[in-house]
Every structure is written in C-alpha cells, then in structure tokens.
Design a protein around this nucleic acid. Structure first.
Lengths: 157, 157
DNA sequence: TCAAGGTAGTTGAATGTTCAACATGTGAAC
DNA sequence: GTTCACATGTTGAACATTCAACTACCTTGA
C-alpha cells in the first residue's frame, strides 16, 4: 500500500518542452565546447576545469580534495587526470607541509600560459553559442535558476 | 597583424556569474541524475536516452543513424551502447528490408517496461532538483534560451 | 555494366572514467 | 601512548568512449 503512494507526477507539456530544450541544448553545447577545446588546445573539459580552479586559488595551488570538490570530480578521477596534466607539465604535485597525507596541486608557469591561451578561445565559443544568442533577461533567469539548482543539490549532499 | 585582431572579449561580471552558475548547476544536476539512474535501474544516461528515443519512434524502432542523431551520440558509440542494451535484452537489432546496409534498433517489451520504471524516477528527480526549484517564468526563459542555443549550434553543423 | 565515390554500421585499439581496495596518516578516547 | 575510527590520496581492473580503419552496400554516370 505504501509503495503505491509514489504516483508518477508527470510534467505538464510546457514544462516538458522547456526541460527537453535544456537537456538537448546543454548536451550539444557541452559537446561543441569539448571538441573545440581538444582540437585547439589538446585539453579536455575536465582538464581545463582543473586549470581554471587552480589559477583562481591563492598561490595557484589547492589540496587534491578541495580541487576535486571545486571541479566536481571524484578524487580518483582527479588523481588520474592530474597525473596526465603533470606529465604534460601543466601541473606539479607537492606534499603538504602540515598534513603528511595531503598533496598540493600547483599550476606551473607553463600551465598558466596554456590556460590563458585556452581561455580566450573558450570564452569566445561561450559567447558565440550561448551568451550572444540569449536575451540578457533570460540569461539572468538562467543564473537564478541554476544557482537554485546547485543549492538544492547541496541540501542532499 | 591579422592574428592580433582576435582580442579576447571577456564577459562582464554578471554574464560571467550567470555562465558559471549554469556550468556548475548543470554539471551537478547531470551527475546526480546519472547516479540515480544507474543506482536504481542500472542504466546510464546515454542508454536511457536511447530507450526514450526508441519509445517515441513510430513502431518503436529507428535506423541506427537516426537514433544516433536524435540521441546526440556518435555512430560508433551508439553501436557499442546498443550491443550492451541488446545483451540486456532491452533492444533488438534487425536488418532493414529496403537497404541491406541498414539496421533497425527495436525497443523490446522488456525494454519498454524497463523504460517505464526508469522514467517515473527520472521525472521525479528532474522535478525535485530542477522544475520545482525554478520560478515558472525562469523556466520559460530557459526553454527559450536553450532552443536558441540549439538553433545556433545547428547553423554551423 | 561497371567503376568511383558515397553512406551505413561495426570493430579493435587507445584513451578516459569509475569502482573498490589499499596504504598511509590523523585525531580523539581511553 | 595505544587503539580505533576516519580522512587523504593512489592504484589497478573493469568498463565506457573515441578514433581510425574496415566491410558491405547503394547510387551515379559514362
């Protein structure tokens, strides 16, 4: 009897339309940006994200766990990705003075300049295919909406 | 001299905020839904997408190329994924009468009922973490915006 | 009718990602 | 100060995706 309480509450047709539009658009946009980044700079989106986060951190370094969290990646994935970035010379690992378990990922100078180059193109694409085709008021709505989504997801862990 | 024309046109700070909010929110949402689907139904998002498209097609079948296009996947990826779905018994392949190169992917009865079950939960999650936390007017804005994004991407292939 | 070029789909190897197990270190309780 | 639970980060194997051939078939046109 209890199980039966969970009746499917379907979306109404306009909700469904909007939801679908979002899913399709965001998948295609992500694909496009990913391809572009890889073709022009040999970086995957997750590698790029890591460089961005490091570049914004104080002293351009972060603990692995913080970096994983801020780049929305699992620790394992970060560890592998970081090894790749390290072998490309864009990132360097160093042990953490206070906590011997800890590891800092540092952005190297080479990493910084690779990021600079990539960011210019990345923003260009974001502009061409996202910012510039969206009405400014709708862009604000997007900001509000996704902030709420992130907050909601944070509530449950 | 020509190369120098491409000056970085950075985003202004509110554009940047909205863009970031979107990237973060959509990554987290995608992650959440992916995990949920896999945990409860053993399906990846791309497998789910394939089942959805098939279920909506006339006679619940599509040519591989059409399916790839509508699920935004490469043909190679579809081919592999389809093999997995076939071995789970959710999809069945059949040669195409008119065109001997062609292959139809059919949704099986088992596939249809697996999809039904998954869809109920999927919608529930979409509602909990997306639809229900977004102001209806903002949701409309999202629909408009991402429709425009998809159109723009379509212009360049 | 047959050669040339295009399309459909699959394959296998290289590459990335996930998952569970592990090694190491910390910190709090006793 | 030893023990126990927990946290950090890495590893390797299983799994998924991408990329570049490749097979088979269709279409066009001379």
């Amino acid at each position: 009897m209890l199980g039966a309480m969970k009746e499917p509450r379907w979306l109404d047709s306009s909700q469904q339309r909007h939801w679908r539009a979002f899913v399709e658009g965001s998948v295609r946009l992500h694909d496009l940006m990913d391809r572009d980044l890889k073709a022009k700079h040999g970086l995957s989106e997750s590698e790029y994200e890591i460089l961005v986060r490091l570049s914004e951190a104080p002293e351009m370094r972060l603990r692995m766990a913080e970096l994983a969290e801020s780049a929305s990646q699992s620790r394992s994935r970060l560890s592998h990705t970081c090894s790749r970035l390290e072998s490309k010379g864009l990132v360097r690992r160093a042990t953490c003075p206070g906590d011997k378990r800890g590891v800092y990922a540092h952005l190297t100078d080479e990493g910084y300049s690779a990021l600079q180059r990539a960011a210019v193109d990345h923003v260009e694409v974001a502009r061409d295919f996202f910012i510039d085709v969206i009405d400014p008021a709708d862009l604000e709505a997007i900001g509000r909406a996704f902030t709420a989504v992130t907050r909601r997801i944070g509530e449950v862990r």
